[in-house]
Design a protein around this nucleic acid. Sequence first.
DNA 1: AGTTTTGATTACCTCAAGGTAACTGATTAC
DNA 2: GTAATCAGTTACCTTGAGGTAATCAAAACT
Lengths: 115, 115
Amino acid sequence: MSALLPVRDTLDVIGGKWKLLILISIWEGNKHFREIERSIPKLSTKVLSKELKDMEENQLITRTILNGFPVRTEYRPTEHSKTLEKVIFELYNWGVNHRKKIFGANSEIVSSNRT
Amino acid sequence: MSALLPVRDTLDVIGGKWKLLILISIWEGNKHFREIERSIPKLSTKVLSKELKDMEENQLITRTILNGFPVRTEYRPTEHSKTLEKVIFELYNWGVNHRKKIFGANSEIVSSNRT
DNA sequence: AGTTTTGATTACCTCAAGGTAACTGATTAC
DNA sequence: GTAATCAGTTACCTTGAGGTAATCAAAACT
């Protein structure tokens, strides 16, 4: 069944290692390239650059170049990006519940095997 | 922020190319290995085998071996798996909306560049 | 004996996401 | 002139998900 296409679309938009972290960083108020980069440990400029492009294409953020002294770019979240909050909340919710189901009581202790 | 850990968990469980297709196939009533395999074009036995194991670990399905003639295994969806329906619906919903936003009117025509 | 069907496992290959690191170009400050 | 800061780009490498194909074991049928 390809009623799954829209699901795939969504997963493409928020999937991958960095997209959500970057989006949240921008939601939190980080506007400039280096600012966002510094707010996320281990994130490289190459990956950030690519992800920001993707996110702009998907209309999750806007990019504005401020001409001036040491050249600044400003990234801002769109209203459209805010509609993701509900989706993310559902994913979060299910995840919390799933952890309880799988690990029981000690959900916090087990499985910190992710970067 | 690692409040994203549960989100990652959820994405791990439903992410990847095949997991949702397999889950839906089982939801639809397919019970046996070959039956599931045949219901999903291009899915190889190796991948199916691996995904079914993952899904069993994540308590989305149960596996029962029926001893008999040409050995049969029975896969069945759990109640826990049903709690994913809401999540999938949200992903679907957002995806549909996103398509409209990005492609406008001709959402159906554009971007069938996925297998 | 040989083929078919079930449910897999194993070895090998491919490809894209992501990681590493060096470099560009513009401008201001030292 | 040299360094620093901003916003990237480019070339190269690594890793893991997934694809391909052969093989295994057990029983039933022919």
